[in-house]
């Protein structure tokens, strides 16, 4: 069971590539690998916390008010993470800006609360939160790394390209986000069809 949850979260039901959830932060903050990693980990923290607490209390919440109740719990975790990041990672917090409070409306978090945590025990919910979060982080990181290397010629702010490389600026500009994600999706479909073809 736990193994299944992990595989589902990380790959076969990957939030970005399979379910197309949480696309706003995916496109917005992936201008560099560091930002992508920071955003992914912040979301993972919120997701794990909300999954865990919702799985504890879900059975006490009347059905008709469960969505508002989940939103309050999620908003609470988001604000705590927001304050902690501002206190400890000030410059990263500034770059991510309003996308940290916007984790509240990230469909991944509410989606996992409704679809998984409200029906499963705390241990499973914790594992689910962690693996879905890490799966999301990995997707962000891949996109962020590509965009940073091609658009700025750096990786984690270290130059990685030849000095004669003229950065393809569009990769870090807004249209680049859509284009790169589109190409990554195409790559995923290509890889999936190859895996199927070999079987």
């Amino acid at each position: 069971m736990i193994k299944n949850i992990i595989i589902n979260g990380l790959y076969s039901n990957n939030a970005t590539f399979k379910q197309m959830l949480g696309l706003c932060p995916t496109l917005a903050v992936t201008t560099s690998a560091v930002n992508a990693l920071g955003m992914g980990l912040a979301t993972t923290a919120v997701l794990t916390g909300s999954n865990l607490s919702i799985s504890f209390i879900a059975r006490y919440i009347p059905k008709n008010v469960r969505i508002p109740a989940y939103i309050v719990i999620i908003a609470c975790f988001v604000t705590i993470i927001d304050q902690m990041m501002k206190a400890n990672f000030y410059s990263l917090h500034k770059v991510l800006g309003i996308f940290i409070p916007l984790i509240v409306v990230n469909c991944i978090v509410l989606g996992r609360a409704e679809a998984f945590a409200s029906k499963n025990n705390p241990v499973y919910s914790l594992v689910d939160g962690l693996s879905v979060g890490i799966g999301f982080t990995i997707s962000l990181f891949i996109l962020g790394s590509f965009r940073e290397i091609i658009g700025s010629g750096t990786f984690f702010n270290m130059p990685v390209m030849l000095s004669s490389y003229d950065p393809l600026l569009i990769a870090v500009m807004p249209p680049g986000a859509f284009l790169f994600l589109g190409f990554l999706f195409a790559c995923k479909q290509f890889i999936d069809s190859r895996i199927k073809g070999e079987k």
């Binding site: 006490y60 919440i61 008709n64 508002p68 309050v72 719990i73």
Partner: peptide
């Protein structure tokens, strides 16, 4: 319902 939401 109201009670639960208020508590939370």
């Amino acid at each position: 319902s109201v009670f639960t939401i208020t508590i939370i």
